[in-house]
Design a protein around this nucleic acid. Sequence first.
DNA 1: TTGGTAATTTTGTGATCACAAAACACCCAT
DNA 2: ATGGGTGTTTTGTGATCACAAAATTACCAA
Lengths: 216, 216
Amino acid sequence: MLIQSKATEPTGAAHDRVYRALRARIMHGEIDPGQALTLRGIGKEFGVSMTPAREAGRRLVAEGALFLSSSGRVSTPELSNERIEELAALRALLEPELAARALPRAHMALIERLEEINNRVSGMIARQDASGYIRLNLEFHRTLYLRAQAPAMLAMAETIWLQLGPTMSKLYGRLRRTEPPRNHKLILAALKAGDEGSLKLAVRSDATQGLRMLKV
Amino acid sequence: MLIQSKATEPTGAAHDRVYRALRARIMHGEIDPGQALTLRGIGKEFGVSMTPAREAGRRLVAEGALFLSSSGRVSTPELSNERIEELAALRALLEPELAARALPRAHMALIERLEEINNRVSGMIARQDASGYIRLNLEFHRTLYLRAQAPAMLAMAETIWLQLGPTMSKLYGRLRRTEPPRNHKLILAALKAGDEGSLKLAVRSDATQGLRMLKV
DNA sequence: TTGGTAATTTTGTGATCACAAAACACCCAT
DNA sequence: ATGGGTGTTTTGTGATCACAAAATTACCAA
């Protein structure tokens, strides 16, 4: 007689799958700020019990991707102006450094990949796909920073993106953009020229520009 | 008839108490790098079941304070040279900014508190108390950075301290120091003079100096 | 209609269990 | 002694449950 149905996943723990899915959703701005989540709801959606749902939630809370209310409920954070400025300052601090470290290793193949990503942004703009726009934008940055060979620094940058995710979607929903970010072009130019100074400047501008419009 | 003994904690969830205790222990270098922990062991020590122990562990893994092996076991991380240098670079990036932001708000009362903390370091050195030394050192920095009014930035700095904790204790156990860090005196002097440039420089030196000796 | 209170439902927490896999210990054959 | 294989123990995982507290709804009186 079967007492307990065996539901252990063979590869990659269940909580990890849930974690990754939620993380991507948050980072790409697919959840509005202040949106509440329930453990049972998460579990139901992913076909797991509350336990893995709780672990995934806790992990995201630890990364600042979710806000934990005093009663234990989790929701997407609603960032204050001060918090947004602080996170933008962190981007402005970390990302130029990552870019500078990537510069000596950025060969033509990488630059071409970046240009290709950058071109795909136009499609997202045409389709008014805010989430897709954010995803490609982050892919552009991550692709460059991966070359920096600085995993801890990159992880920290991603944590900041994660915290900004829900708020970001609001921004891109608001502004009606018609062309890919100007700063990306500057970044590509600096990479081609091998000019560290203007690269750091362009990255810094790119990291802070959009956030300025986020002020409520 | 009592089916299940009620053991819910009235204030502050159990997992949070476990998390805080472990976090402090790790950050202060009370656990050697590579030390393995078991969920049942943690639970037993704190008088809770595996569930809160697991949550606390997961949270610490998310912060980089613990390493999660492929089999799910957690242990204190053993940092490679590259990782140490990267974390030191992050300190060198973040902490001068925090200090600079604290500077305009650093009045005499704060500077006196910092001097008092700095003086207590000598006692720890005399007693060869590595953990106490680390704790006071971090208290010095945190006390200053709290004035920066930048919680996200401070949290990020603390995360780095946390990751360096176990490795740090090894360092301070190795070197036989006889006096409080020279850079702390420079920091205090720069604060009194209101000189942002030399303050950032002194903080940067303090953040990177010790780590240089950590190379295996 | 409105305000508040009671009943009900929703939700997170921590304990416990069955299970699988990993780690470990033991033992014998070479 | 040593290597390999076998059995035992340790350990993490996810499901489930009872419970408390929070949130929501229902309802009634003014």
